[in-house]
């Protein structure tokens, strides 16, 4: 905990006085702590002299910021146009079924996976596409999903 507070302070120091730095700052904070914790945001607000309202405004505006804890692996399921016409829905359903996610749950109980829908990963010619961490998987079929996810399960 102590360590991470130090790292957090290091980030804040680096961004102090730079104009227009709130978004990259929050990106780094999120990278450090996995998601944007309420307490952390309050701390950032005090330290940087930016109102909490502004910080929460920005954090809720951009889809990249997460205000809830997320799984070890983030699965981005592309729901862009090319993927949509190539069956992205069946891929998403297969993933959710495989991970036993119900209702609007997006993170597995063991916090191994978080499933996110995104609009276009820029690999449209390989549609349907998903991204797990930094790795992109294309030309998927629902049948291929257990195999792909299996590589990440413990």
């Amino acid at each position: 905990m102590q360590n991470s507070r130090q790292e957090l302070d290091a980030i804040l120091t680096r961004f102090k006085g730079r104009h227009g730095a709130l978004i990259p700052l929050l990106q780094e904070v999120q990278q450090l702590e996995g998601y944007l914790k309420k307490d952390t945001l309050k701390y950032v607000s005090e330290q940087m002299g930016v109102s909490a309202a502004e910080i929460f405004g920005v954090a809720t505006f951009y889809s990249m910021f997460r205000l809830k804890p997320q799984g070890k692996y983030v699965i981005r399921v592309c729901k862009g146009t090319a993927c949509h016409v190539s069956g992205a829905n069946t891929i998403l359903n297969a993933i959710r079924e495989n991970l036993k996610l119900e209702g609007d749950e997006d993170t597995t109980e063991d916090t191994l996976f978080t499933v996110m829908e995104v609009a276009c990963l820029g690999c449209c010619s390989l549609a349907p596409v998903i991204m797990i961490g930094d790795q992109t998987y294309g030309k998927l079929t629902p049948e291929a999903i257990p195999g792909v996810l299996g590589k990440f399960a413990k």
Partner: peptide, 20 residues
């Protein structure tokens, strides 16, 4: 940071300035 509207030029500049 993931917002389609930021492709619009005035929104994009707001975003560069660190705002919504």
């Amino acid at each position: 940071a993931g917002a389609f509207v930021c492709g619009e030029e005035t929104a994009l500049m707001q975003s560069i300035e660190g705002k919504r």
